[in-house]
Structure formats: structure tokens, C-alpha cells
Design a protein around this nucleic acid. Sequence first.
DNA 1: CCCCCCCC
Length: 599
Amino acid sequence: MTNYQLSEGTLKLIMNDDKVPDPIMQVLGSKKINSSSSDKERYRILLSDGKNNVSFAMLTTQASSGGVQTNSIIKLKKYITSMINNVNNGERKVLLILDMELIADGNKVGKIIGNPTPLGDDKGSSTTVSNSTSIENSSMNRATTAPAPVERPSSMLNQSLSESRIISPISGLTPYHNKWVIKARVSNKSDMRTWSNSRGEGKLFNIDLIDESGEIRCTAFRDIADKFFNYLQVDKVYYISKCQLKPANKQFSQLNNDYEMTMTNETVIEECLSNDNDVPQVKFNFVPIDEIANRDVGTLVDVIGICKSASDLQTFTSRSTNRELKKRDVHLVDQSKTAIDLTLWGSQAESFDGSNNPVVVVKGAKIGEFGGGKNLSTLMSSQLKINPDIQECYRIKGWYDIEGKQADVKNISERSGIGGGFQTSWMSFKEVQEQGLGQSEKGDYYQTMGTILLIRSENSVYKACPTAECNKKVVDLENGMYRCEKCNREYPNFKYRLLVSMNIGDWSTNQWVSLFASEAENVLGKTSQDVGYAMENDSEGAVNIFQEANFKQFIFKCRAKMETYNDEQRLKTVVVKVDPVNYEEHNSYLVDKIQSFIS
DNA sequence: CCCCCCCC
């Protein structure tokens, strides 16, 4: 007779979640678990390592079909432990055998190897199994879920769900139960998304579900996605059953659940139309905006703020994915008297209306960084709410009306580098010219107080691509259509864009500079559209617009860059920002300058 | 079966 060597003592390690590779075990008994759904076949087995045995081991569908004979020797190739919530006994740890190999058939072995004794449950609280190795005695058959079972008032349920008596808590769901009904609130719902890759293409959406026990992500694909997409709405409560569970890919989910689910053809979802007070509302952990400055980039925060302003919708193509992206930046302030930019994407960016200073709430916004400032961005998983009916919303509204509107606000999205409200050093045009600035690739930035001496009004507006943020000059096809080479498209319309060349004088000398639309609009006090219209239809009005701006003074923030044009070096100067003169600031610069001259 | 989370 062959001697079989079991991996003695390993069950204790395994049940303590140590990893033991390919342990050899003996099956001392097995019992098919009653399951009303015929598609799944599972076996509860009494498993021995020769020293200890456990009766709370389970052979999953994928590990075996037809069960295992008593006394068989098996190699556990893949297994996990899992906490199972049992109606009668509370929590219990079970060993789930996901993959095994039969080493020797039970009738060949013919006897129990060693003298195994039941392994105590280290958790202590629910060691009801340790007094018996008898599968017949156990309550495993009934072990479904529910640490705190809730009797379900049948009146609130539709017929298809009413077979089952108990609402399962989300935290108790595992792939090894399939008879459950959860009562959960949709805390978030994604857009319908399409994908296309080597494995195929399709569409999907997902929802996040919460109940008092926990949360879980649920995804629907293709026709099932179509079936449920409109029905499921954020914040509503549903009875949900017969989804397929699988281990969650933690890399892509920040939800606190080891599993996620997929809706199937069997899935039944019914809105809870009566009492849903037992299902929690979405909870927010708002972080004051000033504190976001100290938080790590890449982490998620819940934020509430008043939309002080919002950018136009911008459209561009992602370099990495080649997708066309739409975004809108929303400038938020809160009671910490701090402001931050929040970027919305896609349909949320399109539909956002920043007028009337709405309250913006985001659950799970990602902290980003740009140019030395912090910003926020929504993710697919973020939940956006405008003027939600929550206390904090009314509180911040009140603050804004009474105080916030006029408050001095620190902007933590402000870039210390180039582009926005950045700091540039004071220099005069003459210093820039004499010192030969503008040699670097990025150019050199400086600011000076200057007076507009002359504006070249000819060719100061051009017809641009009507797409938001494209701005490429279009070709007038003279048939009512305008062609954008950048978009490779023809449009029936265009938009005017200012691109103005003007001569600016400061105390030292003068300099020809270029102003793009936003800065030119600032200087002229007119939109590009207005100026374009006047240029075409009202030449006298157009002349006035430009004359009005003559001799106005501003702080000009400039970028100087040397360019070679026809073999000739020329200093090209772009005004990247015009600001009204802050005399206090400018005077302190002049005082410093005088000090340096006399010392 | 997705898993991209983007840009200046």
C-alpha cells in the first residue's frame, strides 16, 4: 500500500492566511450544498492535513465537478479564505478551494491518514464548528449572508424578488453565494461608455452601490447596459439580485470591497418605492479648500465650493489616446477664503452652467498639480452635484452672499510658473533689448508699465475655426463654407478672433508687441466678435474702438523671444497678460529702483 | 468583456 504524505500542520497556517504552496490534503467527507439554482454545484468538504481538519472548506464550481470521494488525497492548487456571514453563527472563516488536483482516489487510499483533530477557529467568537466534524450537523447549508439580517416586508417588493426572505448586506456578498437580494442606494452612475480593443468592442456603464454595511461597484455590458441604464438613477434605492460577483481589480477601484459585480441576463432590479431610510445617503467628507493645498497630488477628496467663475467649454485631442476631450474649468471658493480650479470633463463640462454662482459638490475629486498650483479634476468615479439639498450647501451659500462675495481669496491653483497669475520680474523694454533677452526656447518673461501709443488696426481680426479652443484661421471657400486645416473640416460658420499688433511705450523706449484675443479684448473692452463685426460693417465704429484704447496704461506681462526671419534676428514680443496698474505695487517697484540707483 | 480619468 502506498504511503501518502500529507502537508501536516499547514491547515492552521492556511486558515491564518499564510500562503502555503500546493499543500497535500485528504478529504474525509463531502456533501453537496443545496442550491436552488441548478447551474452551480458546490461541495462542502471535511478536509484534513493529517494533523488537523476543517469542516468549513468548500469546493467551488471551477475546482471540481461531481465532488470528491471520501478519503481522496488532493493537492490544493488555488485557494482563498473568506469570511462568510452565517445567519445563526455570525462570522466564520471558510476555506474556498478554487482549483485542485486529485492525487489519489479515495477507494485506493481507503483510510483516514493520521489522527486529525478539529482546528479551532482563531477568531474565537464563533467556533461552533470545533465541537463537531460532522457535516450533517452543521448549518453550512443555510450559510448565505447577513450579519444583521433584516426581515423584508414583502409588501414593498415585486413578485420576482419575493421568494427570498432576507436582504443581504453588501459587505457579505461573495462569488460563492448567488441567492441574495441587496437593498442599496446608487451613489454614483457613470456615463455609457464604449470600448474597442483587440478582444472586441462594446459599451458599458457602471454604478456604485451603498448600504449600511458597505459598498460595491456594479457593471453592465452591451444590451444589459441598455436595459438598465435609464432605469437606474443616482440616489435612488433598489432591490438588486442575481448579479455575478468576481474579485475586484483593486488597481482600478477605490471602493471598499474585495468584489465587484456584473449584471447578467438573470439580474433583477426593482426600485424601492417605499421606506428607504435604512439605506444611508451618500456621505461627504468635505475637505476645506485651503487644506487641499497640503494634500498629496493624486489623492481623492470630497469638496464643496461656490462657483465664482467658469471657463468656456474647451475641446482638444488627447495626445495619449487621440480622443477628443471636452473640459471646463470651474473656479471654486469656500469659507476658508481659498479658491481652486476644478476641471469637469465630457458631458458634465458641456452641461455645466456657472451663472448665478451655483454650489458645486464633488465626491472623489482628484488632486492635481499644474505649474506649481494645485487643482482638482473629476474622474469617471467622481460624483458631481450642483446645488444639492444638503446642509453644507445652504451654509456656504449664506456665507457667500454675506461675506464670501467680497472676500479676499487666495488662489491655490495659481501657477508660480508661466501663464496665469504668475510672478514676473520688472524690466523695461530698453533693458530687455540691450540685454539681448529671448534666447531660450521658452522665451523670457518680464513685466513693465506701459502706454498704448499706436494700434495697427488692419488685419487685427481674423476668421477662426468655430470649434471651441481651436482658433485656427479658416480658409473662406467663398461658397458659404469655411475650411479649418487643423480640424480637417469645413464649417458653415466661423468666429472672429483678435490678434492685434500695437506699439507700447514705457519710460525707457517703445516696443511692438502682439496681443492674442483674450488680452486684446481686455485692452479694447470689446469682444473679438464685436470688433470683427465693426470691421466688416461699421468702419467708423471700428476706428473708434481702436482710438479709445490709445494712451491707456496697463501692466504688460510679456514674453520676449528671438526669432530668425529671413536670416535676420528679430525680438518677438507677445503680451501674455494685461493687468490694470496697481499703483501701490508699481510705486514700490519704483522706490526700490531709486534706492538701487542712489546706493 | 472596462480599467481611459486626459489639456495647458
